[in-house]
Design a protein around this nucleic acid. Structure first.
Lengths: 213, 213
DNA sequence: TCTCTTTTACTGCCCTGTGCAGTATCTAGA
DNA sequence: TCTAGATACTGCACAGGGCAGTAAAAGAGA
């Protein structure tokens, strides 16, 4: 007897990505247009899950086709806009996703690649790179201060202040660590004779400190 | 007079990406097969510029077509292998690249997205996520210790120990910052009544600390 | 000696994600 | 009224990731 042909099932929408779940999280707070979503991701999620605006126009559509979100066509005058909201299935998916082991943290730090290969260039180039690393960290620390002040004065989601607080605290810790390192490194590099010759500067002193755990 | 047709020039190979320059940096140390390159990237560059092995088989070919690297076909028995080395143009490109302003540092930290949307789930889920963040940081700190010991005992490139030392020092600072935060956060969360109700725990205490700069 | 596992050495394919250009409309201010 | 900026998208080319697949060499153990 021949095998019966499989029943015509709707194409199984792939399980949402991290980006999908992050958007699902924002939809759990309120409804958003894609444009608002993009701005909000820049303000908050950017710190831990940076995504280009472009992507945020595609992802909600996938959520809708998976039944995890709902889209309603509205309009401002003649210009149409799409407002997305979550669904019961969306809330359930978000809840379940919290159980799954998170992907390992990854960092892209181009400036440190330049530090690592600094012996292909001059000490001045290395110092400039360290300067840029420090400046970036300082700018972000200023942003942290600004965000903390906004949370104190006019929070958009006061009922979520506790989650915002612990999140922002991590950002501050990270940026401070980078800034402290950059300041230290700047001092160390000043003792080197050249990028490929540390002179009397002894790397083993550092390695022994790092090896102590 | 009609415009003359443009001379048939070779397709301008696009300027190498960060990944390309990173490989150029490794080729500056010695010649590598792609397989060795992939392993080396996992050991060292991974910390600041993580790239999938797959990509490391494509990128050297682009460097060769841009004249920045040289490929020689060798063989181990009947199996062919490609050994890449740098060129004068490659060394010059690397040197020039060190001057260019680096891309901003970015971090993908899925676990923190789960922390940020923890109010979609339970306190147990949040505690588990914090636990996982701490464990990951501890594992990486152990790796830092291990690498420091290798640098002390049998360094592969002793003449580059100074650059390895300052690089590894940053990794340690970053991981310690995450671990300290996770420990602190675990304690704070223990005072909350639920993920969406911090009880008497006051987020403004944290925000005021963060706002002080 | 034979077998099995691990290491070496890649390629193809599909998917996610980025950056940029392009197309409109709406709003607020000079 | 004119213009700048904000809103609301789409298309396209390219970087990069993950996984499956292929295959030969080297080493380990029976």
């Amino acid at each position: 007897m021949p095998a019966s042909s499989p029943p015509p099932s709707p194409p199984p929408s792939p399980p949402p990505s991290t980006t999908g779940h992050a958007i699902l999280g924002l939809l759990g707070l309120r409804s958003w247009t894609t444009y608002e979503l993009a701005k909000q991701v820049q303000r908050s999620l950017r710190w831990f899950w940076p995504r280009a605006e472009r992507k945020l126009y595609d992802e909600p559509k996938r959520l809708v086709s998976a039944g995890l979100a709902h889209a309603s066509q509205e309009s401002t005058g003649k210009r149409p806009r799409t407002v997305y909201s979550t669904t019961d299935a969306g809330r359930a998916a978000l809840r379940d996703w919290l159980d799954e082991p998170p992907a390992p943290r990854t960092t892209e730090f181009e400036a440190m690649v330049k530090v690592f290969f600094a012996d292909a260039g001059t000490l001045d180039q290395l110092r400039t790179t360290l300067e840029r690393i420090a400046t970036e960290a300082e700018e972000r620390l200023a942003e942290v201060t600004e965000l903390a002040e906004i949370w104190l004065a006019e929070p958009a989601f006061p009922e979520r202040a506790h989650l915002g607080a612990i999140g922002l605290a991590l950002v501050k810790g990270q940026e401070e660590a980078v800034l402290q390192w950059a300041t230290w490194a700047r001092g160390q590099v000043d003792e080197w004779a050249a990028t490929d010759d540390p002179g009397h500067w002894d790397p083993d002193v550092v390695f022994r400190r790092l090896a102590r755990g």
